[in-house]
Amino acid sequence: MTAAAPALARGNAEQRSPLALAALLLLPIAIVNAIGFLLPIINLLKLSFYQSSETGALVEIFTFNTWLRIATDTFYIQMLVRTTLISLLITLLTLLVSYPIAFFIYRSTGALRSIMVVLVISPLLTSAVVRTYGWVAILSEQGLVNNLLSFIGAGPYRLIFNATGIVIGLTEILMPYMILSLMAGFGRLDHRYEEASLSLGASPLRTFLTVTLPLTLPGIALGCLLCFVIAVSAFITPQLLGGGRVFLLATEIYHQAIVTLNWPVAAVLSMIVLIVFGAALALYARALQALE
């Protein structure tokens, strides 16, 4: 509030009260964010420059060693690339399976729409742990999918404790977020645009590609950003469905912090995840700008 005071004195009568009110309303969340978000990140940043001793104890000296080691270690570089690629694949698959559902819900009305929305949201009411164990039961060697495949003489395929399991599990878990984002972004869609396109001689497929799809791009961008970020930071599902065989940033951070007790490495990896988020956000902002 003290910082706002001179600005208030300078502002004219009309501007003063909304500005002061905005500052006042933003203050609580600003404090919460400062304590709960900004401080820990600064701490993490500090931690990433400390040294870990042989015994796991922290040595509070400033060094670039951890950063340099991770930046030159192909294990970590591959992990970063793998995490990004798997998350992108999950995002793409989530988009492909969610789009028709979101579109159908957006176009339906009345009770059907309400029921569909509830159905979409309902998985969020169960913990991701429970849903992941559900996938374990479905995808394991004796699971539903392989049992069904054995009927037609195929398989068994290895669908779990590898990247495939992670992709399948996370895609399903992220679908509600994608569907809700898509529906939020469908606001610009008016069926009159599609009718206009048809009346101008465009086939239904052409109408979808040249009118419907471009108009729903804001929703697609939002959903993809959200799902990519969640996929990169997801820990429980990759941990359980990856079976410790797929090395991803989030699981490695856990491993370094809890098992190996190398906090500086965990801190550096956390900062790298943050950088990936920043890049995704920048890309999203650029995409939105291009859409305007």
Partner: peptide
């Protein structure tokens, strides 16, 4: 005949210009 093969020009009340 489906609408895109009717060869009929249509102007809507809300114009329905493609915003993009």
């Amino acid at each position: 005949t489906p609408p895109h093969r009717r060869d009929i020009g249509l102007v809507f009340q809300s114009y329905a210009l493609f915003p993009h």
